[in-house]
Design a protein around this nucleic acid. Sequence first.
DNA 1: GTGTATTAATTGATAGAACAACTAATACGA
DNA 2: TCGTATTAGTTGTTCTATCAATTAATACAC
Lengths: 166, 166
Amino acid sequence: MTTRWLDDQDLRVWVRMVAVLELLPAQLDSHLRRVADLTYFEYYVLAMLSEAPERSLRMSELAVRTNATLPRLSHVARRLEARGLLQRTTAHDDRRVTMARLTEVGWDKVLVTAPEHVEQVRSLVFDALTPEQVTQLGEITEALLGVLDPEGHMSVPYSRHALDDL
Amino acid sequence: MTTRWLDDQDLRVWVRMVAVLELLPAQLDSHLRRVADLTYFEYYVLAMLSEAPERSLRMSELAVRTNATLPRLSHVARRLEARGLLQRTTAHDDRRVTMARLTEVGWDKVLVTAPEHVEQVRSLVFDALTPEQVTQLGEITEALLGVLDPEGHMSVPYSRHALDDL
DNA sequence: GTGTATTAATTGATAGAACAACTAATACGA
DNA sequence: TCGTATTAGTTGTTCTATCAATTAATACAC
């Protein structure tokens, strides 16, 4: 098997990309833990619900949109429910289905947390880039998602409201 | 506190960026687990050592380069040592210091795994981008690291050898 | 209709990550 | 040179993630 190595330029780009993949989520996660006592994933779950009609989604759909397995989501939902941030109810028409709905407390949590999170995103990402670079980043991420997520599962709530976009 | 929201374009870019941050590491991790029985982080540790002089680094330096805390690295090093992939020895001049060194088996592991990993990186990332986009991605990641890692800790082995670049 | 297959979600067990507490060795100040 | 502070790592505990097994409800074939 002959290996196609990365050429020198690709290599330098990749080293930096790896660093970004490591550092950016870590810093967002750490910020959310500090200001909201939420993991990045927990915040993401709440944010997805907050964008959905009735602030409610069935577990399996929520799992798809957060790229989580159902077991993982189920555990997280149990903890969030214990904290009063969301509520689970069985669907009437199909009693296998569980609907997860944001409570008022959960909604307030998103309302308070989202601005701080957005500010963090802005200062870590958008403030560091020129408008051209933002455009380029949009095209690059689009191209990458063509490979990583051809079905587009993670881009469903594409930009409904401006509130809790991540 | 007045919130500066993201405008519509930034928002769409960010949604996709979030998806990439979630999916790309997950797919690289899952690939490495399958082909090498290594987590992404474990592979990264071995790769960093493989680039270092004597294939050896002190634990604290290795921690900086992998963006890990010392406790985390210590646990991982214990497991890798148990698998015979690296060896830890106390330094003579300062006996507080532990040197982690890649064993022959560990080196072979990197030699076998790196090409498969690089192929995965190529197919998930570089094959999806035009040469211009790769250049742009290089500039963008550089700008981001100016904020995320101003000290440049994670870019130390900048492109010494072409082997085990990630 | 009854039995089987499929779907939706939860539960339980094991492995990994994060944080705090601890140990051991060196540096340093009076 | 004695005591304290600092540095380098490890260990232990708790929380989260992952995978397998299980439960429960619906769909479907005969």
